[in-house]
Design a protein around this nucleic acid. Sequence first.
DNA 1: ATGATAAAAATAAAGATATTATAAAGAGGC
DNA 2: GCCTCTTTATAATATCTTTATTTTTATCAT
Lengths: 226, 226
Amino acid sequence: MKSKIMLVDDEQDIVTFMKDSLEDEGYQILVAYNSEEALRQLPQQPDLIVLDIMMPGMDGYQLCEEIRQHVSCPILFVSARNTEHDRIKGLVVGGDDYIEKPFSLKELKTRIFAHLRREHRNSNKAYHRIHAKNLIIDTLAYEVFYQDKKLAFTYREFEIIKFLVMHPNQVFSKEQIYEQVWGIDSFGDSTTITEHIKKIRAKIQKYDPLSTYISTVWGVGYKWEG
Amino acid sequence: MKSKIMLVDDEQDIVTFMKDSLEDEGYQILVAYNSEEALRQLPQQPDLIVLDIMMPGMDGYQLCEEIRQHVSCPILFVSARNTEHDRIKGLVVGGDDYIEKPFSLKELKTRIFAHLRREHRNSNKAYHRIHAKNLIIDTLAYEVFYQDKKLAFTYREFEIIKFLVMHPNQVFSKEQIYEQVWGIDSFGDSTTITEHIKKIRAKIQKYDPLSTYISTVWGVGYKWEG
DNA sequence: ATGATAAAAATAAAGATATTATAAAGAGGC
DNA sequence: GCCTCTTTATAATATCTTTATTTTTATCAT
């Protein structure tokens, strides 16, 4: 899946320069030569935005604040203005990074890469140990602990727990869970989820009878209580 | 909720300097004077890590890679080494930012704040939370809150609220609502909408008897007051 | 204006339906 | 053969829909 990057700068040469180079890396690029164009393209949901500060009309700072009303992706400022005050202001208005002009392409690329990787980490929640109430779920070792006791879950059970735990407070239908755990190309009856959930609940309840970990949202699905 | 920040640097003066200043800001601080200490404290799950590169024993780059096996929080490098190559390497091994020594406390604080804010944005998934007067509607968790109280809505009720909330101040006929919530191919009597609206109103009114959330437009339909 | 009338909406409660929980038996893999 | 997974049947609930009745609202004639 290609990441979408929006470049906002009134200097066409620099934009072209960045665009070509980033396209070589396999990114999909959206270009805007002023703030209004940028806002118009926002609905396309870029994964990252590179923003010049000095632009005619609405400047980069204002644009950034505006963008933040709608989108939470990383925003990198690029600017020739380079006092500490400028850098701080960039971060204050909602930016995530600040690169001085002139910059090397290599540094730009690396920073973009680092930011996207972090977004990816976040969406993946690649933590390998997740604490959830009184449980600790080790997604690599396939182990669940209640305090020092190890709870024994089967493969499917664990996969279900893992999936839910990684997206706490979000309701998933039986079908969604089935698809996630069994794979998109599996065909089978997702009523088996009900049964697995029951087993999971029973095992947890044995150690922690008071808390609810997986709750049923009637007519919708199941949800991990975070 | 205080954020937990871990400082890793072998220069004790600098650590103390940062620690005092960050504690003033209300952060909770963990201190490590070398990489081993840092790793030992990792299970305490800091929300952000500030990392010096040049340290005796395992250096900052190696430590960063090690940390990344376990934890996905933002890592800020702080270093006197300041070539482009150094900065890039920091990002490559999994860092999220690079601050040159000597740095101003103000810039350090601002960057820390910006990173934590981003984490917060990500974990909050604020896009799925709609604020409407005194209610907060969480479309992923299928939950509605009045201040801190959770209101219990059934599936259909929730879907109706969700639909109306997403188009505030716009009147929809019973048929339109029915079509939206039940699906275009459903056939049934949309008088059931009346009943559901009643239920919704009753539940909200229990907590907020003064405001009107859903108003009736006689002969036309219902409307969410935005 | 006023009151009668008709239409729409609100209410209440019972009946019907659908979803989930439970239990137990059967199938499949190592 | 044992463990896990899946299926099936049944029970328990929560939810949805319908119906009947009352109330509200708008319209219109007087």
